[in-house]
Computed example of a mutant assay.
Amino acid sequence: MNAQMVARVRLGVLVTATGISILAVLLVLAAWRNDHTIDSDKGVATAEVLSAGSLRSAIIFVTPDGVTHNPQLGVLYPTNLTVGQRIEVEYARSDPDLVRVAGRDARVAIVPAGSVIVVTWLIAGPVIWYLRRRENSAAPSTPTSL
């Protein structure tokens, strides 16, 4: 590979790692925004877990007005839930599909997002360093005149 091609690959790695890092930060910011929406118009209910997963868990709950809700996107912060479990949830009364497990908030997203950023740069850093060295060794040297 010539120096120009190596430089392009290095730039691609840098852009990809930066993009992944930005997305991780945006994920935490979106979680905080959702929490703010819930906290500004909070309703509380008891829900039943219909399906449980580490990324998405389906629940069903009834609001005080007697309406049953089964949020299409599931519940926020769904870790450690089991099918059939009854849990307390907090939801935005203006949008009952925006619901989280009671007592959990955006802070639970910080460690996973931070881990993604650290792992991304632990991989990208050495690759960028290697490509930089390769780019420098592949670059044609210019003669110096005295």
Rank of each mutant, 00 (worst) to 15 (best):
N70D: 14
V75G: 04
S51R: 12
A30W: 08
G53V: 00
N80L: 07
E48Q: 15
V83E: 09
T68V: 13
L81S: 02
D95T: 10
Y91H: 04
G103R: 12
L55E: 13
V67I: 09
W32N: 09
G53R: 03
T63A: 08
V89G: 01
V67E: 11
N70I: 03
V75Y: 05
Q72P: 09
D41K: 06
I59H: 10
D65P: 12
T68Q: 12
V75N: 00
D97I: 03
Y77K: 02
S54H: 15
D97R: 11
L27M: 11
A45Q: 03
N80F: 07
Y91P: 01
A58V: 10
V49L: 05
F61P: 11
I87N: 03
A47H: 00
A47V: 13
L98Q: 08
A52V: 07
D105M: 05
G66F: 02
Q85S: 09
L76E: 12
N80A: 09
R93K: 12
V75A: 04
L27H: 12
G84T: 06
Q72D: 15
A58E: 14
L27G: 11
E48F: 08
S57H: 13
G66R: 01
P96M: 01
V89D: 01
Y77Q: 02
T63N: 01
V83A: 06
T63G: 02
L55I: 12
R93G: 00
V44C: 10
A47I: 02
P71A: 07
S94N: 08
D65T: 05
P71Y: 05
H36W: 11
E48R: 14
Q85K: 06
S94L: 03
T46S: 14
V75H: 04
I38F: 02
L81T: 00
I38T: 02
R56S: 13
T37E: 04
W32G: 11
H36S: 15
T46G: 11
Q72N: 14
E88Y: 01
L98I: 08
N70A: 10
D95L: 09
S40R: 11
D105H: 09
I60H: 05
V83Y: 04
D39H: 08
D35M: 04
A52G: 04
